[in-house]
Nucleic acid binder design. Structure first.
Lengths: 227, 227
DNA sequence: CGGGCGCGTCAGGGTTCCGTCAAAGACGGT
DNA sequence: ACCGTCTTTGACGGAACCCTGACGCGCCCG
């Protein structure tokens, strides 16, 4: 099911959108200000964001930038402003589409479908969702980890961290990037989270947690997953 | 350079678009009907298509379908029709965006940039920047150095220094520039840092650290990386 | 020929960074 | 409202890293 994050401070607009989206079998989260939007986006990992630029707490364009700092999720901007400059600024900040209020619900939904369709898996070769090591197997699609024939139970945060590392495919992933992708854009410096959760992952997956073979620390830089 | 295919039967609109696009360093092809558009799209492989729906020879939506049959190239639709149905039909047929005439050139260009930006990583894949020498391999994307089949562990400062040198691509890099890029703008004169860390790099990467083959000192000037 | 300068090498000490543990706080379900 | 699970914090020892000063060497220039 496609998950949508709706961000708008006008309750009636939010209500209208939520009703229409849910009727069409979308899963919907809603936020009424920028800070909540950024937090929800990190927590819920929506497939598309519908964002009103007129928010009470911060500039809508800054919300776009906040999102673009760590995700490529499609962003569909709503705004009462018709000015060309506004549109250009939002689009260049990373928005995918710009709709002016008042808008037709049919059109909005069509633009939303277009945005989602676009973001879908590129027609090519990403069936490499299973990664194997000598001690455990990670299935990214099924969200499952198997070790010694048994399923390993991971908490949401543990899984999210593992996912980002494994998707890195042997590349170094900076601690800032890890923090922002797992905990959200505003968590760029709480490196203690990383220490705690890396320890958890190693305890659950490494043969000798104190001498990790697969979750390598690169001091001062970040972590790396190795087969 | 980004290649754009403009499809419109009104000469003045085509002219305006071509002029504006070329001024911004796009490569532009133009077609005035649907059949030509489909042929040109196949022949020239544009990075984005700007398509007017009102064409003399065929329905614009059929052009969209014709393109979508074999390519995911972004399609930006232009149309004089404001009706919601038209928009929905075009978008659901596979268009990426829909702009009604008359349109602001700034806005159109911004939407075009958004469409191109979005499409970039899907088509290209991931480019690993790898530099090889006879004794070691540097992977700039993965932040990894391999020598004799084994990973070499570099500290953040060592890596940063190596990165600046390697990106220099064989050119001489002045000591002031090295210092400022690695240690920050206020460190222009502490050349002893360079001596210490160059020694570290050589010890870790050169076969004979006291007679370096890859990290060359240019006395009084700076350092150079050579394959 | 001798002093100065720039470069390479080495080792110690202060600081930052990481792994680990434990406990309090937040959340959800029964 | 209670309990179990997950997340967030704080504290601490130990390791890794960065800076610093000292020394030796070769080269240029006086």
């Amino acid at each position: 099911m496609t998950r949508v994050l709706v961000v708008d401070d006008e309750p009636q607009i939010v209500r209208a959108l939520v009703i229409n989206l849910k009727a069409r079998k979308y899963e919907v989260d809603a936020a009424h200000d920028g800070a909540t939007a950024l937090k929800l986006a990190a927590a819920r990992q929506p497939d598309v964001v519908v964002l009103d630029l007129g928010l009470p707490d911060m500039d809508g364009v800054d919300v776009i930038r906040g999102l673009r700092g760590w995700t490529r999720v499609p962003i569909l901007v709503l705004s009462a402003r018709h000015s060309s400059d506004e549109k250009v600024e939002a689009l260049d900040a990373g928005a995918d589409d710009y709709v002016t209020k008042p808008f037709g619900m049919d059109e909005l939904l069509a633009r939303l479908r277009a945005a989602v369709r676009r973001a879908e898996p590129a027609g090519g070769g990403e069936d490499d969702v299973v990664v194997e090591t000598d001690e455990f197997t990670v299935d990214l699609a099924a969200k499952k980890v198997v070790r010694a024939g048994k399923d390993v139970r991971l908490t949401p945060t543990e899984w999210h961290l593992l996912e980002v590392l494994v998707r890195g495919g042997g590349r170094l992933v900076g601690q800032k990037q890890l923090l922002q992708e797992v905990w959200g854009p505003s968590y760029g410096t709480e490196t203690n989270y990383l220490r705690v959760y890396m320890a958890q992952l190693r305890r659950k997956l490494e043969a000798d947690p104190s001498h990790p073979k697969h979750f390598i620390t690169e001091p001062g830089m970040g972590y790396r997953f190795e087969k």
